[in-house]
């Protein structure tokens, strides 16, 4: 089963690429009011017990590069969903 998600390109731009046991995301928040939500996602993973589950690298213009360990992929997508950055998630 694979996790499929959909999002609004007006809110967020998401591009994922698999890389050596990780999934790397290029993320850009398009609407300022969703920026706090993205920061909440970052805080959630930075304050949990595992340091290398999801790593955030901030760039200018509300951009992030995010390295997600494969075993934490679903957790990451679900936290995006919780903060309404992803609109629909389903197992396919």
């Amino acid at each position: 089963m694979k996790l499929k998600y959909t999002y609004s390109p007006l809110i967020i731009e998401l591009k994922e690429t698999p890389n050596e046991g990780d999934v790397e995301f290029e993320v850009q928040i398009k609407e300022d009011r969703y920026w706090p939500a993205m920061k909440s996602v970052q805080r959630f993973f930075e304050e949990n017990e595992v340091y290398t589950d999801v790593l955030f690298y901030p760039f200018e213009n509300h951009k992030f590069r995010i390295i997600v360990r494969e075993d934490h992929y679903a957790a990451f997508i679900l936290v995006l969903m919780k903060h309404q950055l992803v609109q629909k998630v389903e197992w396919v």
Binding site: E20, D22, Y51, T52, L55, Y57, R65, I67
Partner: peptide, 13 residues
Amino acid sequence: MVPVTLSITRQLR
């Protein structure tokens, strides 16, 4: 230092 080190080295692979 350890978390930030792991983060930087992961980025650099």
